[in-house]
């Protein structure tokens, strides 16, 4: 019980509205003003999950979706509230496992985890890319395969570059956690998209749904395939943003949150 109640101390209560507002405002601006093909609507959720714990993270996600639905007309986000909850829950788990801790390392100690992490991401992503529907000649979005490869390469370069510049193996684990969160989020949101919206969401990513269906996927699998494309990318980027935010926050402030010390590790001696 104490484990639960300390996730809702006054400091966490002060953080949650801010996190919810950041989710909604950034998500709205990214999708509607900058019109980017990612969501970036779970930075606040993941931050709360990491600093305060899985239940607080899940609630932040769920409330963000519901308040977003009411605050801004015409968004199709409310029914996806359970997915946002799962993302917050997972963030709490990653924080507990110490994914966001800095791991200073050199040479083999640095590169071995990075290689293992990239391998893990490849294992995760390859079957998704190999979806036969993508390669159907009847309806191929020409930029599609190129886009997937470009993004995968960019993320890989990002992980390696960050690890090299910071002499820190943490970005590798942050990337794995982000990609895994994305895959799970995609699995959770596909049935909702399929049942509530007939598999489309009104965003630019609907072209992927169309392509997958033309390639022979059914309603559910087309929605799933679209999620498998968008979510791991989005959640990996979001995880990096959270990692950078945590690195920029004072350790003293972080330690005042219930899971803060556990999430970023003890003060370096």
């Amino acid at each position: 019980m104490e484990w639960l109640s300390q996730q809702f101390g006054t400091r966490v209560i002060a953080l949650m509205p801010v996190a919810i507002a950041v989710n909604i405002v950034l998500g709205y601006t990214v999708a509607n003003v900058l019109k980017l093909p990612i969501y970036l609507d779970s930075i606040g959720t993941i931050l709360v999950g990491v600093l305060a714990g899985p239940i607080a993270g899940a609630l932040t996600g769920i409330l963000s979706s519901l308040i977003w639905q009411v605050a801004i007309p015409g968004q199709s986000i409310g029914p996806f509230a359970p997915v946002a909850g799962v993302i917050g829950l997972l963030a709490g788990v990653w924080g507990y496992l110490g994914v966001y801790r800095r791991r200073p390392a050199e040479g083999g100690n640095l590169w071995l985890p990075v290689v293992i992490a990239l391998g893990a991401i490849a294992l995760l992503v390859l079957p998704i890319i190999n979806n036969p529907a993508y390669n159907d000649p009847a309806f191929t979005v020409p930029w599609y395969s190129a886009a997937i490869i470009a993004v995968a390469v960019a993320l890989g370069v990002g992980v390696v570059g960050m690890a090299y510049l910071r002499r820190d193996a943490a970005p590798a684990w942050v990337a794995v956690a982000g990609a895994l969160t994305g895959v799970i989020a995609a699995i959770c949101s596909a049935p909702i998209a399929a049942i509530v919206y007939g598999g489309v969401t009104g965003a630019g990513t609907d072209i992927i749904v169309a392509a997958l269906r033309q390639g022979g996927a059914d309603v559910f699998n087309a929605a799933l395939g679209q999620g498998f494309f968008s979510d791991p990318i989005d959640k990996t980027i979001t995880s990096f943003v959270v990692f950078i935010i945590l690195a920029g926050m004072s350790r003293r402030l972080i330690a005042r949150f219930p899971m803060g010390e556990r999430a970023v590790g003890p003060e370096p001696a």
């Binding site: 949650m16 509205p17 801010v18 919810i20 507002a21 909604i24 405002v25 409330l63 308040i67 977003w68 009411v70 605050a71 801004i72």
Partner: peptide, 8 residues
């Protein structure tokens, strides 16, 4: 909830 709704 109240504070988030006003902040957005």
């Amino acid at each position: 909830i109240g504070s988030a709704i006003r902040m957005v």
